[in-house]
Write a protein that binds this DNA or RNA. Structure first.
Ligand code: ZN
Ligand code: ZN
Ligand code: ZN
Ligand code: ZN
Lengths: 136, 136
DNA sequence: ATGCACCCTGTAGCAACTACAGGGTCAAGC
DNA sequence: GCTTGACCCTGTAGTTGCTACAGGGTGCAT
């Protein structure tokens, strides 16, 4: 299959597929006589793995490690578990941090009573962290 | 005050201060005879506003609008309220999205029972979105 | 033969910084 | 008077993960 079809079946931008090849995340495929990239099923599933992992928030480097691991089926899978667990912890930390942010923003937004900018409590609150209730 | 002191009192990297000046977020300060930047209290409070807003997750462009607003104290503050409210909604949307991610990751991580990569449920789950319970 | 969809390479742009390289300035201490 | 060290300057390039061209080639139908 050519790059356009791979793009359609995996829902991946063509430029992104070429980008992944350039950074060595996907192997360079064979070429047709016209120098077009020609992909097989192994490429398709590898790209699906990459896209799905990206949707789950893994970085390219984490995905690289995960792919290395799955390329070597005899290896112990402990590292995969560690990468995924560490990522989960990061997501949880991010959620907690955004929760604090949301609380501060809710407090700040609720203070606007309309009027001119000079008297606006929103603008005032943005300039002054000392009134915040947390370390967002 | 010179840039190093401004950096210390606001907790901002020196390079970041120069960056803000370059993109027009902070006005260019006076210079000493040695061509050193010389800041006053207005610069300090403007930079604090910028940093605090960044910590709350506002983009540079949003901050630019908020600064424009507070530079013109007679203007109606409705726009500040709109920017802050829109930002709060984005934060809430992000929290919801990360919550879905966390749920999928928890499910995936919990499936690893150790062993070799070929049999790893984590690696399998990363390649296959069809077993996910949501549209993360 | 000409239009159109598709493909190629290579480079530059996005956000919001951060990190140099390669220089200049200034006060203290010997 | 000279060095040492802390500080400052400009300008450019790197980071992450793409995305968007520009400027060309290919393949097939009308
Ligand atoms: Zn207001
Ligand atoms: Zn605050
Ligand atoms: Zn496992
Ligand atoms: Zn999924």
């Amino acid at each position: 299959m050519k790059i356009g079809e791979l793009s359609r079946v995996t829902g991946t931008n063509i430029e992104t597929i070429r980008y992944y090849e350039r950074i060595g995340l996907l192997p360079a495929p064979d070429r047709t006589a016209a120098n077009y990239r020609s992909y097989g099923d192994a490429h398709r599933s590898r790209l699906s793995f990459v896209r799905h992992s990206r949707e789950l928030g893994f970085t390219i480097e984490e995905i690289r490690s995960l792919l290395d691991l799955s390329d070597d089926p005899a290896r112990d899978c402990g590292e995969a578990d560690r990468i995924a667990t560490a990522h989960l912890e990061q997501v949880e930390a991010k959620i907690a941090q955004l929760g604090l942010l949301r609380d501060e923003l809710t407090r700040i937004v609720g203070r606007c009573r309309g009027g001119v900018a000079a008297d606006c409590r929103v603008i005032e609150a943005l300039g002054d962290h000392s009134r915040c209730g947390s370390q967002h």
